[in-house]
Design a protein around this nucleic acid. Structure first.
Lengths: 187, 187
DNA sequence: GAATATATTTAACATAAGATAAATAATCAC
DNA sequence: GTGATTATTTATCTTATGTTAAATATATTC
C-alpha cells in the first residue's frame, strides 16, 4: 500500500487512521498480462491503483476493439461511468504487462467518506485532476490531425510507445492501425 | 438562488445553513448576449450556474474559434482546467443568449468545504457527474463520423440546434462549418 | 425598411484517413 | 530452435472531410 499512500500525498496528507481504514478495504493482487481484470457488462465496484505493470480500458464499437485509456505505475484506473452511476460498464479492464495492483472496494470506500472527510477530500481531488486531464484530452482530439495526435503522444507519454502494442495505441488516438503505421513511416 | 438549490437536490439535500453559506458567497448577474463573461488569460475563480440563457466555453486553435462546450438553463459552467489548477485559462466564456447567472466565488466556496462537508460532497458529486459526461463525450468523438456525431447531437440535445448558431456547433463537433452544412444538406 | 454585417449554403477541388489485401516482422508455445 | 500465431508495415483504391471562394439567406443597425 505504500506506493498508493505516496501517490495520495500529492493531493492531501492523510492521518494514520485514515490510511489504516483504506488499507483494510484494499487488497493487493498479482495478475498476468493479457488477463481481463474486469469484464464487460460488470458493474464496477473497485478502484484500482497500479503498483507495477500496465492496464487499459477498452470496449467494442461495431465489433472493433477500442482503447479508451492506458494506466501505468503509480496511477489509478477505474471505469468511472459505471463506478459513479451504478450502471453496468460496457468497458473492460485488461492487463498489458504482468501487474501488481491495489484493489480498493469502492462500496466500502464510499462508506468511509462519512467517517473520514479527509478520505472524501482525497478522492474529490483525484477526480478533479482526472477530470481536468480528460477535458485536455478532448482538446487534443477535437482539432488535431492523426499525425499531430501521434506526435503529441510521443512527447507526453513516450513510455506508451515503448511498452504498448501499436494496435492498442491506434484506437486510443482515434485512428486505424494502418493509418498509424503510415504516419510512423513518414520520415 | 432557488434554481441552483433545486439543481443541487439532484445530488444531495443541503441544510439551511449550508444553503445560506452558499448564498452569501454568490451573486446574481444579468448579461447580454455576445458578451464575454470571462476573458482568455484570466485565472478562473468563479463557478457559474445558469438560471436563464446560454453560454459556451471557447478557445482559439491557430486563429480558429473552437467551442469546447455549451451550457443551458439549470446547469453549471466553469473553466475547470483553470479552476482546479490555479493556472490562467486559455479559454473564454461567452454568453450566447441574454442570461441570468449565479456567480459563485470559488475561493470562498473551497473554504466552506472545511466547515460544511455537505457542500464539499455536493461539489464532489457534481464533478463526478461532469467527469462521467466528459468520458462519454470522448467515446462519442473517438470513432464516429461527422454525420454520426451530428445525428447524436440532434437526439441528445435538440435545443442546441435550435438556439445556437451552426458555426459554434461545427467546431464543437470537431468539424468545419462547411462540412456541417454539407451533412445537414443530405436528406 | 434600407443598408450593412453576419450566418449559412453550395460548388469545385485537394488531401488525409479508411478499407481491404498481402507481405514482412516479431513473439509465443512446444 | 522450429512452426504457428500475432503484430506491423506496405500497397492500392475509395471516401469523407478540409480548403477556398462565391452565392444566398438571415439578422442587426440606423
Amino acid at each position: 500500500m505504500i506506493p498508493f499512500f505516496q501517490f495520495s500525498k500529492r493531493y492531501i496528507s492523510l492521518s494514520k487512521e485514515a490510511e489504516n481504514a483504506i488499507t483494510e478495504i484494499s487488497k493487493i493482487i498479482l495478475i498476468k498480462k493479457h488477463t481481463e481484470l474486469q469484464p464487460i457488462g460488470h458493474t464496477c465496484k473497485t478502484i484500482y491503483f497500479i503498483n507495477k505493470g500496465i492496464a487499459r480500458i477498452y470496449y467494442f464499437k461495431d465489433g472493433t476493439d477500442i482503447t479508451e485509456s492506458f494506466s501505468f505505475e503509480n496511477n489509478i484506473i477505474a471505469r468511472v461511468e459505471s463506478l459513479f452511476t451504478g450502471q453496468p460498464s460496457r468497458k473492460a479492464i485488461q492487463i498489458l504487462e504482468d501487474a501488481e495492483i491495489v484493489a480498493i472496494n469502492s462500496t466500502l470506500l464510499f462508506k468511509l467518506y462519512d467517517k473520514f472527510p479527509e478520505i472524501e477530500r482525497l478522492f474529490r481531488l483525484i477526480v478533479e485532476s482526472a477530470y481536468v486531464d480528460t477535458i485536455n484530452r478532448i482538446e487534443g482530439i477535437q482539432f488535431h490531425s492523426a499525425e499531430e495526435r501521434y506526435k503529441a503522444l510521443i512527447n507526453e507519454a513516450p513510455d506508451v510507445l515503448k511498452r504498448v502494442p501499436l494496435k492498442y495505441i491506434a484506437s486510443y488516438l482515434g485512428i486505424t492501425q494502418v493509418s498509424l503505421s503510415r504516419i510512423r513511416g513518414i520520415r
